[in-house]
C-alpha cells in the first residue's frame, strides 16, 4: 500500500513537471522519472515484461529520440529558442477542460458495473503463472500472433514514413533540396551584383 502511494505521488509530480517545465530538456528529465516510476508500478501490478519494455522502449529509445530532436532544433548559432509563452493565457481554460475530462472519466467509472470492474466475477487466467514473462510470451506468440505480426508491419511503415518526411531522398527532401539550391543561386547573383 505504501509503495502505491509513493509511486502515485512520484508519477503525478513528474507528470506535472513535464507539463509545466520551461524548457523541453527539463520536460525530458521529468518524463524519464515518470517512465521509471511507471515501470515500478507495472512490477507492482505483476506485469514483469511490460516493466522491462517500458524502460527499454520508452526511457531507452523514445526519450533519446526527443533529446536528439531538441539538439537538432537548437543546433544553430543561437540556443534553442522557444516562442513567446502563451501558456498563462490558455492555462485556465485548459485546466477547466482537464477537470471536465476527469469528471467524465469518473462518471463513467462510477456508473459502470463495479463488480465487473473489480474483476470479481470472471477470473479467467491461471493465477499462479499470471504476469510472468513465460505467460506473456506464450500468449503473444500463440493466441495473439497476428496482432504481433501486424506490429512489425506498423513499425516498418513508420520507419519508411520517417525517412520520406525527414530524409533528403524522399519527395519532400527533393523539394527542400531544390529550394535550397535556388536560394544559393539567388545569393550568388546578389553577391555578383554587389561586386559590380
Amino acid at each position: 500500500m505504501i509503495t502505491f502511494w509513493i509511486l502515485a505521488i512520484l508519477l503525478i509530480a513528474s507528470a506535472v513537471f513535464v507539463v509545466t517545465a520551461k524548457k523541453p530538456v527539463y520536460s525530458v528529465v521529468g518524463l524519464l522519472a515518470n517512465f521509471l516510476a511507471l515501470a515500478a508500478t507495472y512490477l507492482e501490478l505483476q506485469a514483469e515484461f511490460l516493466a522491462v519494455i517500458q524502460i527499454v522502449v520508452y526511457s531507452g529509445a523514445i526519450l533519446i529520440l526527443f533529446v536528439f530532436v531538441i539538439a537538432l532544433l537548437s543546433s544553430g548559432v543561437k540556443p534553442f529558442e522557444v516562442g513567446p509563452d502563451r501558456a498563462p493565457r490558455i492555462a485556465v481554460p485548459a485546466v477547466l477542460f482537464g477537470a471536465l475530462v476527469l469528471a467524465g472519466i469518473a462518471a463513467t467509472v462510477v456508473g459502470a458495473n463495479t463488480a465487473a470492474l473489480r474483476g470479481a466475477a470472471g477470473v479467467t487466467g491461471d493465477a499462479n503463472a499470471f504476469g510472468s514473462v513465460a505467460d506473456f510470451g506464450a500468449a503473444l506468440f500463440t493466441t495473439n500472433l497476428l496482432p504481433f505480426e501486424v506490429t512489425a508491419l506498423l513499425l516498418m511503415v513508420a520507419v519508411v514514413g520517417v525517412v520520406l518526411i525527414a530524409g533528403d531522398e524522399g519527395p519532400a527532401g527533393i523539394v527542400r533540396r531544390r529550394k535550397r539550391r535556388s536560394l544559393e543561386r539567388e545569393s550568388i547573383v546578389k553577391r555578383e551584383r554587389a561586386v559590380r
Binding site: 501490478l45 506485469a47 470492474l117 487466467g125 506473456f136
Partner: peptide
C-alpha cells in the same frame, strides 16, 4: 484491469 481479471 489485466491484474483484476487475472488475464494477460
Amino acid at each position: 484491469y489485466a491484474r483484476a481479471w487475472v488475464n494477460n
